[in-house]
Design a protein around this nucleic acid. Structure first.
Length: 533
DNA sequence: CGCCTTTGACCAGCGC
DNA sequence: GCGCTGGTCAAAGGCG
């Protein structure tokens, strides 16, 4: 390695390398005898050549404007020493590895730029989310007023209206189950059209079809030539995994929205020795296939907690690490969930919702994974990735790692890193961090606790929430399985919020509103299995 | 008996 | 059109 190499610096945040040697030439600090080299350049791309005195000067005919420097700190190390690239007109710094190609420097600069953009998009997303929440609350308020003007004896399509003695709870009834059931972006539109064939009324409708377990019905067993459109075409009933025909009674946009929502998938990666992670739902296996590129078979499950629940999931072990269980969820539950199932359902729904809202609102159709990850579990080390090449929009929540991804270098170390000796008595910052995480998650997932007018700070300081945090942190401390601990934590919070709010729990079947789908519990024997929770 | 799993077959989408 | 692949169906059998 001799003379004839150097760096090119310009104002476009790029670092180039020229050399009279073949491409692939890389820098090493050993050239500098542990003392470092400073490069100076001009405002314009110039070539900076190494000199024996370890200083580099720009060409004499160039204006001497320092735009950056590169320091070599070899310190008797070998090829792993750092190169620090500085720009005097910029506060940013980046740590580079000298044993890597100079392309790493370019990538570093690009990463910084993308991080700045991520922050900007994060702010935008937060703003949109806040507006969305405010709009929902406003609509709920309008609905409350509208309901108040109607007679109490309204019964439509076999639904049972709750008496209007507690309007607050009625509003919550309109909100909470909807969020648990349909976290899709069409919720607002549907709320504006209560008389339309929204999902809850379709579910609650006293229809003979709903009393038939369609997937197992004679209609299906008669043969493969059946017309699948006869299987309750207007419901969210189980339908083959394909886009349904357009319903002329609904806007095309809405149907496309629903179809996309159904297509959205959330994949959860978690370490588990069990054949299936415990998510609180009841599933029936309906198929198993060998997937290409994976020696482990892929199992197909459908939710059996309610008739015609469209939710399916695929379970498969990772080909790379058999200890990792990949569970892919698709669809939204059309029934209330037991507390044990609420955590995973809300998380996956939040992810799907975020994915879809991101893919729809983003100009380029690609959502930043960091934003998504932080939106879902803002303070955890969970990684969220989006697969753009998959046939369906898929977001992957990686719960297998608890160490921050190296790319997320700007994330503080203190966030949701469970210490080894973490006790059930958590430190306030820990509780606050996780509490904020859960609260943020609830915002994004649509989970709301009917503490209307209670802001984030109030919510965090609410007594029940404090207790919840204790239970949350205790659960994490007690359970080495992060997935299970997270589920237990969120479950405890949701359960506590509901009970604290004097809300009828999920077992209630008679005093709920039409929008509260607890009614459908009466149609399923299986749902009674979790009433003891 | 009812529910569940297993498993081979069928179907649709996609690429060539 | 053909083959591959993913997804689903449904008959058969097991289990409590």
């Amino acid at each position: 390695m001799g003379k004839g190499w150097g760096l090119t610096l310009d104002n476009s945040d790029s670092v180039g390398l020229f050399s009279n040697k073949p491409v692939g030439f890389s820098l090493t600090p050993r050239l500098n005898n542990n003392k470092g080299i400073m490069f100076t350049g001009t405002e314009f791309p110039v070539s900076l050549n190494r000199r024996e005195d370890h200083t580099v000067s720009p060409p004499a005919n160039e204006p001497r404007v320092v735009i950056g420097e590169v320091d070599f700190f070899s310190d008797n190390k070998k090829s792993n020493d750092n190169i620090v690239v500085k720009k005097e007109n910029s506060p940013r710094e980046a740590a580079l590895r000298t044993d890597s190609d100079v392309n790493l420097a370019v990538l570093q600069v690009e990463l910084e730029r993308m991080n700045a953009e991520n922050q900007r998009l994060k702010g935008m997303l937060s703003h949109v989310s806040d507006n969305y929440s405010a709009l929902r609350m406003h609509i709920a308020s309008l609905m409350q007023q509208q309901e108040g003007s109607k007679t109490e004896s309204t019964q439509e399509h076999g639904t049972v209206r709750v008496k209007s003695e507690d309007k607050k709870h009625e509003v919550r009834g309109l909100m909470v189950p909807r969020q648990f059931m349909d976290l899709g972006p069409s919720a607002v539109a549907e709320t504006n059209e209560p008389s339309q064939s929204s999902s809850e009324e379709r579910t609650l409708s006293v229809s003979p079809k709903n009393n038939i377990d369609l997937p197992r019905s004679k209609n299906l067993s008669e043969g493969k030539g059946i017309d699948r459109e006869q299987e309750s075409p207007e419901s969210q009933a189980w339908v083959p995994n394909k886009f349904p025909k357009l319903n002329p009674s609904k806007p095309v946009v809405d149907q496309a929205m629903e179809a996309t929502m159904r297509k959205a998938r959330v994949s959860v990666r978690a370490r588990s020795e069990a054949p299936m992670i415990t998510d609180g739902c009841q599933w029936r296996k309906y198929g198993q296939k060998m997937a290409k590129g994976n020696p482990c078979p892929r199992a197909y499950y459908r939710c059996t907690m309610a008739i015609n629940c469209p939710v399916r999931k695929q379970v498969q072990r990772s080909a790379e690490d058999r200890a990792i269980l990949i569970t892919t969820y698709e669809g939204t539950h059309n029934h209330p969930l037991p507390p044990a199932a609420m955590a995973m359902a809300s998380t996956t729904s939040a992810a799907a919702n975020m994915l879809l809202s991101g893919s729809m609102s983003s100009a380029d159709g690609i959502m930043n994974p960091n934003i998504l990850a932080r939106a879902i579990l803002p303070s955890s080390s969970t990684m969220a990735t989006i697969s753009a090449s998959a046939p369906f929009p898929t977001v992957t929540l990686d719960l297998t790692t608890q160490t921050p991804n190296p790319l997320q270098f700007q994330r503080p170390q203190t966030q949701f890193q469970v210490p080894q000796n973490f006790s059930s008595v958590s430190t306030p910052p820990m509780a606050q961090v996780f509490g904020q995480a859960l609260y943020n998650q609830s915002k994004f997932s649509g989970l709301q606790f009917s503490h209307q007018g209670m802001d984030s700070a109030q919510f965090r300081h609410h007594p029940s929430f404090t207790n919840t945090l204790t239970a949350t942190t205790a659960a994490i401390a007690a359970d080495p399985n992060f997935t299970a601990a997270l589920a237990a934590a969120i479950t405890s919070m949701i359960g506590g919020a509901q009970l604290n709010n004097n809300n009828s729990d999920i077992r209630t079947t008679t005093t709920t509103t039409a929008a509260n789908n607890n009614n459908i519990l009466t149609t399923s024997n299986k749902t009674s299995s979790f009433t003891g929770n």
